[in-house]
Write a protein that binds this DNA or RNA. Structure first.
Lengths: 228, 228
DNA sequence: ACCTGAACACCGTTCAAGT
DNA sequence: ACCTGAACACCGTTCAAGT
């Protein structure tokens, strides 16, 4: 059956009776990562993955519930590889560090945007991600938030992070000759500021990474609103 | 050919020579909305849409570039139906009003989450959405932001809004018996705050709509960071 | 207990041809 | 200029059967 605890079935520990498995979840994750790295994540299908593993497609269904389960498995793998290091003592900085770690892990998984837009994601996150949630909630509480306020702080930052990842992923895939829009072609009478800004500045700002700076503004705003 | 200006081909205005079209973009949008409303948005495929219109599937490709183009067409339609009303005079409130309008329009389009996670979205938004962008950027400028800061303010709020929509959509589709996670089952030694919060409070806070409140905190934080 | 091929029920998109 | 059916090249998932 499916081990949701991530147990590797190649473990030498004696298991339930029956035919021993030839395929482990660890092997599946490794093969999936190989496909993603060499062919691109869009090419990751259950059929290809089975072929890569040299097994029948339907065999995969003994190890993952469905395609979504596979993607979440991969996300948890990536999060596990991005541990929170150098935890700051100041609660405010700790929130920023934990959220930035979440962002960096998701940014390293180009398929995150698709997973985040599907059902039941938060229900299946692994221990690594849960620890980041605890870190943020605990820091907010330490700062003086009630439990309810702390949960709201987490959710707000989670929305911001998910949005940044979704938009970032889309932008990265964008063809080179892409232009946000012809801002210069807009009517200056109705859109004076966008015309004044122009395509060049817009694109330059969009290309920059201002996640942490905006995150800090958000944290400050949320904590000020909660504590006063 | 494809009219990206949204011109209805049923218009009585004389058009380029040739066989007159039997299908208009307006008809396509109407048929798509009917499928979404009656069968659910997941059932909206090009094949079904063509069947609904009583035309061949391939005929659709004369009116929309591809599936993504269709979805963006639908988004623009929804945004057009959610105009920004009662524009506040105070810049800060104007930003909040414009962002909330964006959110409300996207929340009314259950397929928005998928579109937002695909390529080239911002490049194809219609006039209604562009006006909301101008409103936010202009208000930030009026408050004292430079153009660069104003663009950053918009992008930050856009991330937050996209994330809220993506997470909200997923949560809405979630089966009734869903539980975020068994927070009570976590080890109190490693996750004391999450255990203390518990499933009941977490779910209650998650179910609530705190978009505008958090948005206001974000706007305050961003403007304070920019202006000091 | 684990693995399998065949089959089911679909997709989006392209192409050459019709009116 | 507009419309079309057939075909291409796939999908995820289920099922009954094998070892």
């Amino acid at each position: 059956m499916i081990e949701h605890d991530g147990t590797m079935t190649t473990s030498p520990t004696p298991r339930r009776a029956g035919r021993p498995p030839r395929t482990s979840r660890a092997q599946i994750v490794a093969a999936a990562r190989k496909i993603i790295d060499t062919e691109g994540w869009e090419k990751l299908t259950l059929r290809r993955l089975a072929a890569q593993l040299g097994i029948g497609t339907t065999t995969l269904y003994h190890h993952v519930r469905d395609r979504e389960d596979l993607l979440i498995l991969l996300i948890n793998d990536v999060v596990e590889q991005h541990p929170l290091s150098d935890v700051p003592t100041e609660p405010r900085d700790r929130i920023v560090a934990a959220a930035t770690t979440m962002r960096d892990a998701l940014a390293a998984a180009p398929w995150a945007a698709e997973v985040l837009a599907t059902d039941g994601f938060l229900a299946r996150v692994g221990p690594g991600a849960i620890t980041l949630v605890e870190t943020i909630v605990a820091a907010a509480t330490e700062y003086g938030c009630t439990h309810e306020q702390a949960v709201r702080v987490f959710r707000s930052l989670w929305y911001f992070t998910v949005g940044e990842i979704v938009v970032r992923t889309r932008t990265a895939r964008r063809p080179k000759d892409f232009r946000f829009a012809a801002l210069g072609d807009l009517d200056p009478a109705t859109h004076p500021q966008l015309v004044a800004i122009g395509d060049e500045l817009w694109q330059r700002v969009s290309a920059g990474d201002h996640y942490e700076e905006s995150l800090r503004a958000f944290v400050d705003g949320l904590l000020a609103q909660a504590i006063g």
